[in-house]
């Protein structure tokens, strides 16, 4: 009975010990992925902002500007690109919809973002675009990779249609979570006007005909949960100007404000990320370490049982068993345990 038990324990020990690296380095990279059908929205606000009135072409102070950022996964398109590229991809259709204090649209910029569901690397297929312009992303956008590292990443800037480094600036605590703080400063850059303008009849072409162009600068800040790679908070100190191409007139501020996530969305995001990180930790920490410890414990138990089975009875001819007179003393591999049939055959009867 003890021999069978120790063999079962040995088998389980090997099972759990092998499971540990397999889960961490084989299963996790293949199972951890952003769901293709994800849908999420976040609201950001800039209070006491400056906004251009396109009717008068003068900047004005407003109490609040809201930005509604929606991301919606297109599962059918992701499957089509999967088949074409052989990669597990996510296709996000996004919309950054900017609303003025009166609830009217200020601008809207749609975009399509195609990326690897596991690594978050951009995939240049499926019509990735910003406001209808084809783009080729480098690095990340909206979200960082699983197990985010303490290093700089490339972050895609939808306004400039280009990627630039976003710098890791340290580890902080945010609402009870240990997060990595990233910061990117985009210097004054000439950027396209949104194709949908807030005033009827005003288009990027009419603005260009007036001899104006749009320039923008921003300081972008993210507090990122390093386990899931999801930002739990984001802010931007954002400025836009309409500049005259002749350079003779002073630029007009189109927007200036400190954009922050609305408090209820911060709470919601922190709650969501706190639960999602458990699933990632299960595969990167809890299961690998738990199964390794269990494997070592089971192996120890199996060895202990085997050693007890092999231990010779005290006194060779006496001892407990001898005293009872039930069996002759047995020892070595013959007694019980992990002996081979050959070994047993060679043992004396």
């Amino acid at each position: 009975m003890r021999r069978r038990s120790s063999l079962v324990l040995l088998s389980l020990a090997v099972f759990f010990t092998a499971l540990s690296p397999l889960v961490r380095w084989y299963a996790f990279p293949r199972l951890a992925k952003i769901p293709a059908g994800q849908y999420q929205a976040v609201v950001l606000e800039a209070r006491d902002a400056t906004l251009l009135d396109y009717g008068t072409m003068r900047p004005k102070k407003v109490a609040k500007v809201s930005i509604v950022q929606t991301l919606k996964g297109d599962v059918e398109e992701a499957r089509r690109i999967d088949r074409a590229t052989g990669r597990d991809v996510v296709v996000w259709d996004g919309l950054a919809y900017v609303v003025g204090p009166d609830g009217a649209m200020v601008s809207q910029v749609p975009e399509r973002y195609v990326f690897d569901a596991h690594t978050q690397e951009p995939v240049h297929a499926g019509g990735e675009s910003v406001d209808g312009d084809p783009v080729e992303r480098r690095g990340v956008e909206f979200k960082f990779p699983f197990l985010t590292q303490k290093r700089d990443y490339y972050y895609f800037d939808a306004q400039a249609r280009s990627s630039a480094p976003i710098h890791y600036r340290g580890t902080q605590e945010f609402r009870g979570l240990e997060v990595y703080y990233f910061e990117q400063t985009v210097p004054w850059t000439k950027v396209p006007l949104p194709k949908r303008m807030p005033v009827e009849g005003v288009t990027p072409q009419t603005v260009a005909a007036m001899g104006m162009e749009r320039w923008y600068t921003t300081k972008r800040m993210f507090w990122v949960d390093p386990v899931t790679g999801a930002p739990v908070n984001g802010e931007e100190v954002h400025r836009e100007e309409m500049r005259f191409t002749d350079g003779k007139q002073r630029p007009i501020t189109a927007f200036a404000g400190h954009v922050k996530m609305r408090e209820d969305y911060v709470r919601h995001t922190v709650d969501l990320v706190s639960s999602q990180r458990q699933a990632v930790l299960l595969m990167t920490s809890y299961l690998p370490w738990g199964s390794l410890l269990l494997g070592v414990a089971l192996l120890s138990l199996a060895l202990l049982l085997e050693a007890r089975g092999r231990r010779p009875a005290a006194g060779g001819t006496g001892g407990v068993s001898g005293a009872k007179g039930s069996r002759p003393p047995r020892c070595g591999a013959r007694a019980r345990g992990w002996s081979s049939p050959k070994h047993r055959a060679a043992s004396p009867p």
Binding site: D74, Y97, M105, P110
Partner: peptide, 11 residues
Amino acid sequence: DGSTSPEPLLT
């Protein structure tokens, strides 16, 4: 993978 959400892009 799930399915594409019926929710619209918010305006």
